[in-house]
Nucleic acid binder design. Structure first.
Lengths: 339, 339
DNA sequence: TTGAAAGCGCTAACAA
DNA sequence: TTGTTAGCGCTTTCAA
């Protein structure tokens, strides 16, 4: 930096002011030009650590993924999420530190990132179980945004409205004339995404004055396509088998589809099915899967924006943001056939 | 840090030595214990920027993805790659900075990360076009590892052997008795992944003494399933239509499958098809896609390991690592039916 | 075995 | 409009 100052014939302060475009400092255009020229000549770039030490800010946020490696592998949303977050924070010239941690109650290794001031804030993606360290951090006003459902209400969060989305999916089936509509959960009910979607299913049926029968509700404990397959097998064995199914995730829907096809039945002629997530490959399938589209990129963008606001000491309102989903109608659903 | 020193009744130097476990320094167990106790009492954590400034190392590597947001969205490999890299670098207590840049010749924004010493090394994933900045960086001995095919040979890289893998895929079809085997590229031929896979296809046919006919080779310019769909349509229109197809990516295979099914033909009874990539959802399909499995996680691990070696001044041998792929046989391929 | 002290490269308050 | 200077919090050499 001294070299740049020398080359430009000014002091280091001036160089710093020019480079930072510091407000409330009047520096002649000519001087600025000389400084920039010197910077260019010397191919100078300020040392990050020094700036960070002096300013007390790291210009970095951490993206914490609460997933084990195996889950990471099949996470079709990661790209969209990262893309969104990056987009949002790059406006303020922030960068993203990626960290994947498991589901352990206190996998708090990431709190170290904050304590050492390596990052200025945290985006946590995935279910947040009771984590005392996190609670402490939040109490100390560390900027934190959760992507999903936070464990305690005061946390800032962005999510989709699972209940309303599920209602939409089921309403679509009702609109097509279906009456015997089954539901396969996307996972165990202690996950809010699962229980909320089940709740939406219930609401849609009740609103339409349809009975909500337990035999048509399959709790899939696994999050996998295999779980969907087995659940569907049970449904197909029912005396009055459903004419439509709401599978609470696309992956589970895939499993269900396999079961249906193996049984010699056709989609959507014999059974309609709607999924949830709109994972990138949902459209590649034949028949293309009708499903609920989640705005993944937006999920990332909003989380990034909220975090930046928090970092800038400008708390976002409201605390919890729910993003709109939309029904994508492809070819796995059709009007009920009179039989 | 001074507080910790006071609390433990030692100097800051000693605290530093204990915390770093500095070698060649003998500190009594009792003293060490007191220091750690003080650290715990005060919930102390060293400021990252200060350490970084003093040591000249950032304990951070950048993961540069050469993809535009749209590609990122459907990147099924990202999770595996990140998982692998993270795994490899976490051993040395390194962290990962994620950055997505487009394909522009010199999208060199990321070189700033190096110049400012914000990161100690670079992993670049995706095609590297001629990038002068990158070349400069490499010449200055900045640790860089490319995931894929590097633009200039001297770069360290880890990749899969596309030629050999394609050969394996086609050999599988040959072994099943197929003679009229078509090929649909996964993208334009200026991408080495595409041209190398085509080359493997050729080699397999030649090795088997089969003719390699242009009419059975479809160059798909798009990387999309739609491209695969259209290419397959052309193949189906041929007077002697192929009995088997090697699609150079799973996504392209999906498109081809759609075309085949629309034509009223059955897989694998009428036409066998093998893909490439083994994207996470390849197995969800019915019929499950026979394909070439790419060890994504390992790709990340090796890249991470090589980078760490470079950072530690211990250049890995060899320069370029090719990882083994393997053929995953599912249900989209079957022996040739005598007709 | 421990301590003193000199940086690391920058920012920003203050002075000029 | 520009320069002086005191930190920011740590590492590490050298001396004790």
């Amino acid at each position: 930096m001294q070299q740049v100052a020398d080359e430009a014939g000014v002091s280091r302060t001036t160089v710093s002011f020019v480079l930072n475009n510091t407000p409330n400092v009047n520096i002649s255009a000519a001087t600025r030009a000389r400084v920039w020229q010197a910077v260019a000549n010397l191919n100078y770039a300020r040392t990050f650590a020094a700036r960070s030490l002096a300013t007390g800010r790291s210009q970095t946020v951490a993206f914490i993924l609460r997933q084990v490696p195996d889950e990471l592998l099949v996470n079709g949303f990661l790209g969209g999420l990262l893309s969104g977050v990056t987009q949002a924070i790059s406006a303020d010239n922030y960068r993203l530190l990626f960290e994947a941690v498991g589901h352990d109650a206190s996998a708090g290794a990431y709190t170290e990132l904050v304590r050492t001031q390596r990052v200025d804030g945290l985006i946590i993606s995935g279910p947040v179980v009771d984590d005392t360290e996190l609670r402490d951090l939040h109490r100390e006003s560390v900027p934190i945004v959760v992507n999903g459902k936070p464990d305690f209400e005061e946390l800032y969060s962005v999510d989709v409205d699972n209940v309303a989305s599920a209602r939409t999916a089921v309403q679509h089936l009702i609109d097509l004339g279906h009456r015997r509509i089954a539901h396969i959960t996307n996972g165990p009910l202690n996950y809010t995404a699962s229980s909320d979607r089940l709740e939406g299913y219930r609401q849609a049926l009740l609103n339409a004055g349809l009975p909500c029968e337990d035999r048509y509700i399959q709790i899939n404990p696994t999050f996998t396509d295999q779980g969907g397959y087995e659940a569907m097998r049970h449904l197909l064995d029912l005396p009055e088998r459903p004419t439509a199914v709401f599978a609470a995730s696309d992956v589970v829907a895939f499993g269900a589809i396999r079961a249906i096809q193996e049984a010699g039945l056709h989609i959507p002629a014999d059974i309609s099915i709607v999924g949830f997530d709109d994972i990138p490959l949902a459209s590649y399938l034949a028949p293309g899967l009708t499903t609920i589209h989640i705005p993944v990129v937006q999920l990332g963008v909003r989380a990034g924006e909220m975090l930046m606001q928090l970092i800038q000491g400008d708390p976002p309102v409201p605390h919890r943001v729910l993003l709109e989903t939309r029904l994508v109608i492809r070819h796995s659903t059709a009007p009920l056939r009179e039989s």
